[in-house]
């Protein structure tokens, strides 16, 4: 008796789509301290990419990051007996090529929704647009700046000095503040 196809596929290597042009559209880097979780989640991400119709490449094992700390086991006079600790971060890279930006977003959102414990993800996404991008970006800035205005209010001066003439006024107000109104 045979298992259903969908079930049988789980025991095989993840299927992949062919990339027609090979233009990278997303680099997903995953990091973890445990290889097992990382391998599992890479597999999951590749399968998700296949079923979304995204050509995925990888997982590429990136160099491991090893951090080491040496601490004395006890007080300073016993400085000669120390202990070493280390933390090794494993990394994997999955690249999506020829993906539609929206599909890539769906894929990333799906991975985030089913995020696995002990795994960090970060993605670089590239989008391509037509000529005269500058004009489109200028229009976008207007929309975005409205959204950002209340965020900017949290940063720095509430009002700028607006020119050299106002420096004296600022200093006077500062003097009052520093001296406590005296």
């Amino acid at each position: 008796m045979r298992m259903p196809r969908a079930l049988e596929l789980l025991y095989l290597k993840p299927l992949r789509r062919e990339a027609e042009f090979g233009v990278p559209s997303c680099d997903l880097q995953m990091r973890s301290y445990s290889v097992r979780n990382l391998e599992f989640f890479c597999d999951f991400a590749l399968r998700a990419a296949y079923y979304l119709g995204l050509p995925a490449f990888g997982p590429v094992p990136l160099p491991r990051i090893t951090e080491r700390w040496t601490v004395p086991k006890s007080t300073f006079i016993y400085k000669k007996s120390q202990e070493n600790f280390e933390r090794v971060t494993m990394r994997r890279l999955i690249q999506i090529r020829d993906g539609h930006p929206e599909t890539v977003q769906v894929w990333l959102a799906f991975l985030q929704k089913h995020a696995y414990y002990g795994i960090g993800m970060k993605a670089n996404v590239w989008e391509f647009s037509g000529l005269e991008v500058g004009k489109a970006m200028d229009e976008n800035v207007k929309e975005v700046s409205e959204l950002l205005e209340d965020k900017w209010a949290h940063l720095g001066h509430k009002r700028s000095l607006e020119g050299i003439e106002n420096v004296d006024e600022f200093l006077v107000s500062e003097r009052v503040k520093v001296s406590g109104g005296r």
């Binding site: 301290y33 700390w69 601490v71 006890s74 600790f85 280390e86 933390r87």
Partner: peptide, 29 residues
């Protein structure tokens, strides 16, 4: 103080040996 963990060296050692710091293990190489 170890900046990575905001802990003094001895507390870091205790926590690491107890396994409270993700990924930190005793190293030997």
């Amino acid at each position: 103080i170890l900046r990575d963990f905001k802990m003094s060296r001895y507390n870091f050692r205790l926590q690491a040996l107890e396994g409270n710091l993700p990924g930190v293990k005793k190293a030997s190489w």
